Measured scan of single mutants.
Amino acid sequence: GPGLTDLFKTEKAAVKKMAKAIMADPSKADDVYQKWADKGYTLTQLSDFLKSKTRGKYDRVYNGYMTYR
């Protein structure tokens, strides 16, 4: 089956995709945050998933999740 690194890459891609969806349409934020909360994502995990070469690119999404939880 898929190894943990593959799983991480898949999760990371999914999280980034959802983060971009929030940035494009902030009204989606609560739905996405709820999904992440259901998956039990911690802020540390989210921070790892949303690492970007562009500093602060996903800060709004991260901060939103922090206040959501």
Results as ranks from 00 to 15, higher is better:
residue 41 Y to I: 11
residue 13 A to S: 08
residue 16 K to T: 07
residue 46 L to V: 08
residue 49 F to I: 06
residue 53 K to A: 09
residue 1 G to C: 15
residue 57 K to I: 07
residue 2 P to V: 11
residue 38 D to Q: 13
residue 67 T to H: 14
residue 20 K to Q: 12
residue 56 G to M: 04
residue 24 A to W: 05
residue 3 G to P: 12
residue 30 D to T: 10
residue 28 K to T: 10
residue 61 V to S: 01
residue 68 Y to G: 01
residue 8 F to P: 07
residue 27 S to F: 05
residue 16 K to E: 07
residue 63 N to E: 13
residue 43 L to D: 05
residue 4 L to M: 14
residue 24 A to K: 12
residue 69 R to N: 06
residue 3 G to H: 15
residue 39 K to T: 07
residue 11 E to Y: 04
residue 11 E to F: 04
residue 44 T to E: 12
residue 20 K to D: 11
residue 23 M to R: 03
residue 49 F to Y: 06
residue 25 D to R: 03
residue 16 K to H: 05
residue 1 G to F: 10
residue 64 G to K: 02
residue 18 M to H: 05
residue 29 A to G: 06
residue 29 A to H: 03
residue 42 T to Y: 02
residue 15 V to G: 00
residue 39 K to I: 10
residue 20 K to S: 08
residue 52 S to W: 05
residue 45 Q to Y: 03
residue 36 W to A: 00
residue 3 G to Q: 13
residue 65 Y to D: 01
residue 34 Q to W: 05
residue 54 T to N: 09
residue 7 L to F: 12
residue 22 I to N: 00
residue 47 S to V: 09
residue 7 L to S: 15
residue 29 A to Y: 02
residue 13 A to P: 02
residue 37 A to H: 15
residue 62 Y to G: 02
residue 7 L to R: 12
residue 69 R to D: 03
residue 40 G to E: 04
residue 48 D to C: 15
residue 50 L to Y: 01
residue 56 G to S: 06
residue 18 M to N: 06
residue 30 D to L: 12
residue 68 Y to W: 15
residue 60 R to Y: 12
residue 34 Q to I: 04
residue 31 D to Y: 11
residue 34 Q to D: 04
residue 4 L to Y: 10
residue 43 L to I: 07
residue 38 D to C: 13
residue 63 N to H: 13
residue 38 D to N: 11
residue 34 Q to P: 04
residue 59 D to Q: 12
residue 69 R to A: 07
residue 47 S to E: 09
residue 68 Y to P: 00
residue 15 V to M: 03
residue 29 A to V: 03
residue 5 T to Y: 06
residue 7 L to E: 14
residue 6 D to A: 08
residue 26 P to Q: 07
residue 64 G to V: 02
residue 47 S to I: 08
residue 19 A to S: 03
residue 33 Y to T: 00
residue 36 W to P: 00
residue 24 A to F: 08
residue 43 L to N: 05
residue 68 Y to S: 03
residue 12 K to G: 07
residue 62 Y to R: 07
residue 68 Y to M: 03
residue 19 A to N: 00
residue 48 D to A: 15
residue 54 T to Q: 09
residue 25 D to Y: 04
residue 2 P to A: 11
residue 53 K to W: 05
residue 19 A to H: 00
residue 2 P to G: 13
residue 28 K to I: 15
residue 50 L to A: 01
residue 57 K to C: 04
residue 13 A to G: 05
residue 69 R to S: 07
residue 7 L to K: 12
residue 42 T to Q: 03
residue 64 G to E: 06
residue 54 T to F: 08
residue 50 L to T: 02
residue 22 I to C: 05
residue 15 V to L: 03
residue 22 I to Q: 00
residue 4 L to T: 13
residue 5 T to M: 09
residue 3 G to I: 13
residue 20 K to H: 10
residue 11 E to S: 04
residue 9 K to Q: 09
residue 21 A to I: 13
residue 26 P to G: 05
residue 11 E to L: 05
